[in-house]
Design a protein around this nucleic acid. Structure first.
Lengths: 337, 337
DNA sequence: ACTTGGCACTCGGGAACACGGAGTGCTAGA
DNA sequence: TCTAGCACTCCGTGTTCCCGAGTGCCAAGT
């Protein structure tokens, strides 16, 4: 149905349209790419491609524009991920290396990605699920309040102020802290609930009410942040582009954690580090935009996802290259720390 | 030069223009506001106002539009800050009350403000300067690394991973922690440098290299975050509005901490809790937008600033009311915790 | 059977134009 | 000092027209 030449025509259409933002006609195609055939032949091929739904014309007698289906075929079969230049690689490396803490890593990553792709970059904070407890700290604030600080091996810090049901003196708090740490240190977060389930019973009766309160907050912290914080950057890059769905909707989606989460998608369990590309109508909630995303994290333990969001008319090979490269570098950084 | 009626005309022009977004003419003014005079009279007044630079006409024979100078006079002398409805007050209260930690307070505040004003809201994180140390924690990660966690009375947590110059065992770390806390607990952050200056000398010689490293990171943390983190929300509200300077520039400014910082401005030392209004060209860096901001924080110790950013054509009385109210509530919340 | 050149056709978008209306400035009169 | 009237000025809108890029189709060529 679609011979090699027709595919070549489709590729040429996508490339030209992405770079010029104008419907591309048969004559221009024949000139710019050396397809060795006449415009008339190309017109026939285009008619076939349109018949199959890969391209469309905005109006009768205008050039052709790729459809979502056309872009899909392009990324699946007609293009290769474009690696970054060595200058870009160096820039990434030095830029990410300067990070001082987890917040900083995430911040730098998202900005870097936005700048590199000239799209909106989105980065999900490393998930707690696979992390392990590095330390639990209880800081007495006054005799009725303590602050709970949970530090994970990814450098993440969670904090909560806890109102205790009764006055508890500092030495007992310290004891509780010691017990908690000996019990949880190094354990996976997902195992915490079972590990602490029988903890109150092992304590002197007088400590149990306070311990119960603290534990409930601890558990709450774990589940509450299960669906994670997401940050974005590069909204300015939206200013030029045009979205079928209107700029406003896109900006709103960016500030809705839940929607953003859905857009980034789930790491598919079989090939966790694969690039995911969702084109236009393939996206939930936000049709008219494309999302290029991937999981990151060292090796088999995928921490979270990152990617970019832009108009369907984007340079997929370059964008995919940038996303993949940044994901690798940030994985590396996180693994090292 | 400007009698009462001319001022009334200016006020009417601003109000009408803000609500309709169309140049307002003499006839419409005479009808909508009961000024008790004819359009012709109003025309004369308008000519005078234009002469003085308070209004301008986009083209000959179009209605008048307020200039920056006109808005300035309006907010200074012709309008009163509009208090919120009691329903809005309740909404603020309940929305902010649910916050679990400092991040959450800031996040909720900025979203609330954006929704309330339908503008872009900007909130600066509470400054460390006036805070006091509540606790310093040193968590051994392995025998060459510790994590420094600094907790302030505003609920803020700063964290750094420190690479030690030599292997230090846990009991010595614990000792160092105890010394640090006994030395710093409850002290203002600005006094920390002098308080720790002679600390190494009071330690056994073997601990000094490690202590010096840790202290230098601690001090660095204090100064580095002196100019603070800023967050914004409500970028979607920009979609409708039109900016002379182009939407792109505004979005870029929002992601530049430094620019945003300048826009929020400094808390004037004499009247720290006063509302600041910067209109159009009065703004550094971003002419064509207006900023309504104020300091927040309990009583005399101002922690930081918050406000909104929007087109010069905004409803100043309402916006000012919302900013002031939110600032008060968040101050209250922070003081209580 | 595919490719090619030719040709008539179709629209979108820009230029030219007219026109109605909202708004103004000015002047004369109350 | 205010008001009514009037001539004038443009902006924005709608209309028309035309050009050109691009198409689809057909017939001829390889």
């Amino acid at each position: 149905m679609l011979d090699d030449r027709k595919l070549a025509v489709l590729r040429a259409i996508v490339e030209d349209y992405v770079s010029t933002n104008e419907p591309v006609g048969s004559k221009a195609l024949a000139e710019r790419h050396n397809l060795k055939v006449s415009p008339a032949t190309i017109r026939n091929d285009m008619a076939a491609l349109e018949e199959e739904g890969y391209i469309a014309q905005p109006h009768t007698s205008a050039g052709r524009v790729p459809t979502d289906k056309g872009y899909r075929l392009f990324v699946d079969r007609l293009s290769q991920v474009k690696p970054l230049s060595s200058a870009e690689r160096r820039a990434i490396e030095t830029f990410l290396a300067g990070a001082v803490d987890l917040d900083d890593v995430v911040m730098r990553t998202v900005r870097l990605l936005a700048q590199l792709t000239r799209q909106v970059a989105v980065v999900q904070y490393p998930t707690l699920t696979r992390s392990t407890v590095r330390h639990v700290e209880l800081v007495p604030l006054n005799d009725r309040r303590v602050m709970l600080v949970l530090i994970t091996n990814t450098g993440r810090v969670e904090q909560r102020v806890i109102e205790l049901p009764e006055v508890v003196d500092e030495t007992r708090i310290a004891h509780l802290r010691a017990v908690l740490n000996s019990c949880l240190d190094g354990c996976g977060l997902s195992t915490v609930p079972e590990l602490v389930s029988d903890l109150p019973e092992r304590l002197p009766a007088e400590d149990r009410p306070a311990a119960a309160t603290i534990l409930s907050v601890l558990l709450e912290t774990l589940v509450e942040r299960h669906d994670e914080k997401i940050v974005f950057a590069g909204a300015a890059n939206l200013a030029g582009a045009d979205f079928s769905t209107g700029l406003r909707d896109v900006l709103e989606a960016l500030e809705e954690q839940v929607v953003l989460m859905r857009l980034l998608g789930e790491t598919s369990s079989d090939t966790p580090s694969a690039l995911t590309v969702r084109i236009g109508s393939e996206n939930p909630y936000l049709r008219g935009t494309s999302v290029v995303a991937t999981g990151y994290g060292s090796g088999d333990n995928q921490l979270a996802r990152l990617g970019v969001l832009g108009p369907t008319r984007m340079d997929y090979p370059v964008t995919m290259g940038a996303v993949r490269a940044v994901a690798r570098y940030v994985s590396q950084i996180l693994a090292a720390s």
